[in-house]
Amino acid sequence: MLCVKPYNMLCKIFVIPFWEMWDLPDIFVQTLWEGLVGGTLYSLIALGFVLVFKASGVFNFAQGIMVVFAALSLVGLHAIGVPAFLALALAAAIMFVLAVTVERVVLRPLVNQPDIILFMATFGLTYFLIGFGELIFGGDPKVMITKELYIPTGTYSIDFAGGRVELQKLDITAMVVASTMVGVLAIFFSKTRIGRALRAVADSHKAALSVGISLNQIWVIVWFAAGLVALVTGVMWGARSEVSFALEIIALKALPVLILGGFTSIPGAIVGGLIIGVGEKVGELYWGPLFGRGIESWLAFMIALIFLLFRPQGLFGEKIIERV
């Protein structure tokens, strides 16, 4: 309507979407909210990545499948009659066993190998966990035991600017849980002895070893922490949709989040996740129709790619000085 012939396309890209946002603010706010919630979950996965990368320099490709695996363990245990909260504790225990196994079988023999080798090892781990998970739990999607864990469902409706914005109680819970977890982790890192050791390891493996910090122990701890983060992510994600192996692919979206935030920054992971989550939802709703929908599948990666060209070290990373 606003667009005239020769500027049609430009106008559809640069004018109409913003006009739509202004015209129907309730829809815009609703989309923002959806984006924030989606972004929270990306942040959580990215957080798992960052924990492992910070402490061991390992680019943990398996974080996505760990989310699936943790959620499946929980649902699977409940399905054979284990009470919900006991199942939750047991799932956490399974993640601990996984952390110990990974440290023993994969990391310890590969210490001091180049990064790319360690990455590939976690790639192998991903394959293994996919096969293992499907073997035990079956490949079909499962329903998260939301009610049994007393996670509130239902919606709050808020009247807003002549329209109505709906907030899922589930989503609010997800955000509260996520923020709590980030807070706990932050305290853990800055206040506890293990947390300080962890930061020491992140700075230099050799130096940490020389002051008597056990690398093996630290690795088990961070992988366990990443496993717990994975469990929480799995519960939240499962509650919003379902528990399935497709999540493993969606979890790859944590990678652009990491690029935005920097590989070693926890605040970066949070902010990056929210940016990606919001950008994706807003992009899909307002610009998606121009391209034939479904741009959500790659928009996050493209945002990250363009961002990389201008700021390779991420939002919170330090500028890298190369030396010879």
């Binding site: 994969v106 080798i117 090892a121 790639f123 192998g124 293994f128 499907e134």
Partner: peptide
């Protein structure tokens, strides 16, 4: 068989890398 294949491939990757 497919699931076991996945596990074997994963294990082989780790095995070879080590």
């Amino acid at each position: 068989a497919e699931h076991i294949t996945f596990m074997v491939v994963g294990a082989l990757i780790v095995f070879f890398l080590i």
